[in-house]
Design a protein around this nucleic acid. Structure first.
Lengths: 103, 103
DNA sequence: TGCAGTGTTGGCTAATTTGCCAACAAACAT
DNA sequence: ATGTTTGTTGGCAAATTAGCCAACACTGCA
């Protein structure tokens, strides 16, 4: 993997490296949602949520479709579950290491 | 997943969301390496590489062990391969989508 | 038509990140 | 002891990111 290839991959990872965007992905994992429903999960300004969704869309992690007045968001990243599981395994390992240091 | 949990996971993801750090992880995937060898892969100042390694260490993705004069780095994230494969699948899908739009 | 509701965009500030240089600490060699 | 090599830390400037507000475009309804 050269730098340019790493750069492209890093951009996709970066899109997931934010708590709000990670939660959005988690919400979309099992079902499509419209903007209003996603926005309602958070207490941020709707423009903030809209921009986070744009980041996810630009990375190819979600897609959007305008239907009448509202916009439906759909997950495109089929390996979300594996991705989250992988991160959780690192997290679990970190916690275990912390525990063992206390003894 | 609440915000706090997402924050913790996002911090781990963020550690991987940089081309240099992604390349380091790729290098360490199959073998331990000392600092000098890792540093040699890049054209950055050694302090820059050292700081990237610190970020990976703080996230629990790699560990380090001082042996005599030099420092050995070791990967702790056992799911690196799956992680990279997952990102690659998103990348591949993006490229396919671009292709189809050209026609 | 005009008005209310829905989501995006522009612009701004504050906070974070990145990379370099210089200085430092630790191990080793002379 | 002195100097050299190896890696980390502090501090700085430039670049990027996050969030808010205001303004806008688009749809649907009266």
């Amino acid at each position: 993997m050269n730098y340019e290839q790493a750069q492209i991959r890093a951009d996709i990872i970066k899109a997931l490296a934010h708590p709000v965007r990670l939660m959005i992905v988690q919400e979309l994992k099992d079902k499509d949602m419209n903007f209003a429903d996603i926005n309602q999960v958070f207490e941020y300004d709707k423009s903030t949520i809209s921009k986070h969704l744009t980041v996810l869309k630009n990375a190819g992690i979600v897609s959007s479709k305008k239907i009448g007045a509202d916009v439906i968001y759909h997950i495109e990243m089929c390996c979300v579950n594996k991705f989250i599981d992988c991160i959780d395994s690192v997290l679990k390992q970190n916690i275990e290491k912390q525990q063992s240091c206390l003894m």
